[in-house]
C-alpha cells in the first residue's frame, strides 16, 4: 500500500511539474496572466476609487474611508490570486476535440489530472500573492495580522477548492454542450458582482445585501476579505461551514455529471 501511495504521489507531482513547464514555456504570456490583476488594481481600482473620493471630497462611503476602501480592494486582489484559477478554460475544448481520450487511457484519472494542474497554478499564484502583499504592505496600504492572515488564507483556500470544483463541473458539461465557457463567464460575472469583488456589499441596497447571504456569493470574496482586514464580525465557523457545504454540493454534482458524461462520451473523431 505504501508503494502505491508513493506512486500516486509521484503522479501528482509529475503533473504539477509538467504544468509549471508548460506555463513557463511562454514566460511573457505567463507574466501577463498573473500580473493582470495587479495592473487592474493599480490602473483601475486605485485610480477610480481615488477619483471618486477626491472629486467628491467625501471622507467616508458607508463607513469606508479611502484608506479602508483601498485595503478592501487590495484584499480582493489577494483573494482573487488565491482562489481563482484558469482550470476549466481548456477543459471543454479537450473534451470537444476528443483529446480527453488520452487521459482516459492513462492509469491516472482525469479529475486528479485537473486537480494537480490547478494546484500547480495555485502554487505560482500563491507566490505572486505573497510578493504583491509584501510590496503593498511595505507601502503601508494594508496591515498584516498573523491570526487574520491564517484565517483568511484558510478561508481563501476553501474558496479556491469551491471554484475549482465548480469550474470542473461546468467544464465537463462539454459532454453535452458544445461550448461551456459561456456558463463559466456567467458564473464569474455574477459572482464578481454579488460577492463584493467590485464594490463592497455595504454599498448594496439593504434588501439585496441581506438576500445574498442565502447564496454562496458573499462567501467567495466579501467574507475572506473582511477576515483578512480583521473587521469580520460574524461567526468564522459558520463561514467555513457554509463554504464547505457548497463545496460538497458541487463535488457531489461533479460525480454525477462525470458518471453520466463518460457513459455518453463518443470520443468525437478520437
Amino acid at each position: 500500500m505504501a508503494g502505491t501511495l508513493k506512486a500516486e504521489w509521484h503522479k501528482w507531482w509529475a503533473t504539477v511539474v509538467i504544468n509549471w513547464r508548460r506555463l513557463l514555456a511562454y514566460k511573457l504570456n505567463f507574466l501577463l496572466l498573473v500580473i493582470g490583476p495587479v495592473l487592474v488594481f493599480f490602473f483601475i481600482r486605485y485610480q477610480v476609487w481615488a477619483g471618486i473620493y477626491r472629486l467628491e471630497g467625501v471622507d467616508t462611503l458607508q463607513g469606508y474611508t479611502f484608506e479602508q476602501m483601498l485595503a478592501y480592494q487590495v484584499w480582493v486582489m489577494i483573494v482573487g490570486f488565491l482562489a481563482l484559477g484558469f482550470n476549466g478554460m481548456n477543459l471543454a475544448e479537450e473534451i470537444r476535440l476528443g483529446r480527453i481520450s488520452s487521459y482516459l487511457l492513462y492509469p491516472f484519472g482525469f479529475w486528479p489530472f485537473q486537480m494537480a494542474s490547478f494546484l500547480a497554478f495555485q502554487g505560482l499564484q500563491l507566490l505572486v500573492a505573497t510578493v504583491t502583499l509584501l510590496a503593498v504592505w511595505a507601502m503601508g496600504w494594508v496591515q498584516l495580522q498573523p491570526l487574520a492572515l491564517l484565517q483568511g488564507f484558510s478561508l481563501a483556500a476553501c474558496v479556491g477548492l469551491f471554484w475549482f470544483q465548480a469550474n470542473f463541473v461546468i467544464g465537463i458539461l462539454a459532454f453535452w454542450l458544445e461550448e461551456t465557457w459561456v456558463l463559466r463567464v456567467m458564473l464569474v460575472t455574477l459572482s464578481q458582482f454579488f460577492s463584493g469583488a467590485l464594490i463592497p456589499l455595504e454599498l448594496f441596497p439593504k434588501a439585496l445585501a441581506q438576500a445574498l447571504h442565502w447564496l454562496p456569493f458573499p462567501y467567495l470574496t466579501y467574507m475572506p476579505v473582511k477576515v483578512f482586514m480583521g473587521t469580520y464580525t460574524g461567526s468564522l465557523w459558520q463561514a467555513f461551514a457554509v463554504l464547505l457545504l457548497w463545496t460538497l454540493l458541487v463535488f457531489g454534482l461533479a460525480r454525477v455529471v462525470w458518471r453520466q458524461g463518460i457513459h455518453n462520451y463518443t470520443g468525437a473523431g478520437i
Binding site: 503522479k11 509529475a14 503533473t15 509538467i18 513547464r21 508548460r22 514555456a25 492513462y106 492509469p107
Partner: peptide, 20 residues
C-alpha cells in the same frame, strides 16, 4: 498526446510517473 508547447522529454517523464 504529447504536450504541444514543451519538449517531448517532459511528456515522457510525466508518462513514466503515470505508468509507474
Amino acid at each position: 498526446q504529447l504536450w504541444w508547447d514543451i519538449p517531448a522529454m517532459d511528456s515522457f517523464v510525466l508518462l513514466q510517473r503515470y505508468y509507474e
